[in-house]
Amino acid sequence: MTPTPTATFTATPTRTPTPTIPPNTHVFAGQVRQANGEPVPAFSYVQLSGSLLPSVRGVYIDNATTDNNGYFRLDTTLVFDYYHLYLAPLDPSHYEFVEARPGVGGELVNARWIRYASPGFGMHDGNEFVVTVTSRRLPRWPLPTVPLPPLPTVVLPIPTVAIPTPFWPRLPRWLSTGRER
C-alpha cells in the first residue's frame, strides 16, 4: 500500500500594515470619548496649533473631526517649540469637558488642552479627551411646524414736501455781458 498525500495547512505570519510617517513630520493622534467609555464620533473639532510660548496656543495649524470610533489624527511638518491639542467644538454648550490624558511626552494644561514641549518628529499618540455630551447636537427631524398668522398689510402715507427752487443771485450787468462799465 502506498501512502496518499494529505493536504496540510501551514500558517505564515503576515505583517499588519503600519502607517508610515513621512520624514520630518509630527503626528498627533488620540481619541475623544465619553465618561462612560463610549466614543464620540464626528466630534468637531480637535485643533492643532503651534507656538513659541508654552502658555499661548499660538498659530492655528489644522483641525480634525473624529471618526466613528472617536479617533483623530493631525499631521504637520511645521516646526514650533510647543504644540497644542485643543478641543474646540462648534458649540461648546453641548459638552462638559471632564478630563484630558496626554500621551507620552505630552502634558496636561486643562480638560480641553494638551501641550507638547519640543517633541521630536514622529508619532505622538495616546492622547485622550473625555467629555460628557450635555444635549443632542442635532434636532430630531422633522421638526414640528407651527402655522404663522399672515402679516398685516400696512399702508404708509408718503409725505409731500415743497422743495424750494435754488436762489441764484443776479450778477452785475457788466459781468453778464462781458463789457466793463
Rank of each mutant, 00 (worst) to 15 (best):
P17H: 13
P19Y: 09
I21T: 10
I21E: 10
P22V: 05
P23W: 07
T25N: 01
H26M: 12
H26W: 08
F28N: 07
F28I: 05
A29P: 00
V32Q: 10
V32I: 00
N36H: 04
P39N: 06
V40D: 00
F43E: 02
S44P: 05
S44T: 12
V46G: 05
V46I: 11
L48P: 10
S49E: 04
G50Y: 12
S51F: 09
S51H: 14
S51R: 14
P54D: 04
S55L: 15
V56I: 15
V56Y: 09
R57A: 07
V59K: 07
I61M: 04
A64Y: 09
T65W: 00
N68Q: 07
N68L: 02
N69K: 06
G70Y: 01
G70S: 08
G70F: 02
Y71Q: 12
F72S: 03
R73L: 06
T76I: 12
T77R: 15
L78M: 11
L78K: 14
L78Y: 11
Y83V: 01
H84D: 08
L85E: 11
Y86K: 08
Y86R: 14
Y86S: 01
P89R: 02
L90A: 07
D91Y: 04
S93E: 11
Y95S: 03
E96D: 06
E96N: 08
V98A: 04
V98H: 01
A100L: 03
A100H: 03
R101I: 05
P102C: 11
G103F: 03
V104C: 03
G105I: 04
G105Y: 14
G106H: 08
E107P: 02
L108I: 07
A111D: 05
R112V: 01
W113Y: 04
W113Q: 01
I114E: 06
R115K: 05
Y116T: 09
S118Y: 00
M123Q: 09
D125I: 00
D125S: 12
G126P: 07
G126L: 05
G126T: 06
E128Y: 00
E128Q: 06
F129P: 01
F129E: 00
V131G: 05
T134W: 13
T134C: 04
R136L: 12
R136T: 15
R137I: 09
L138A: 10
L138G: 02
L138K: 13
P139R: 09
R140F: 13
R140H: 02
W141C: 08
P142G: 05
L143P: 09
T145N: 06
T145H: 05
V146P: 01
P147S: 09
L148A: 15
P150Q: 10
P150E: 10
L151F: 13
L151R: 15
P152H: 14
P152W: 01
P152F: 12
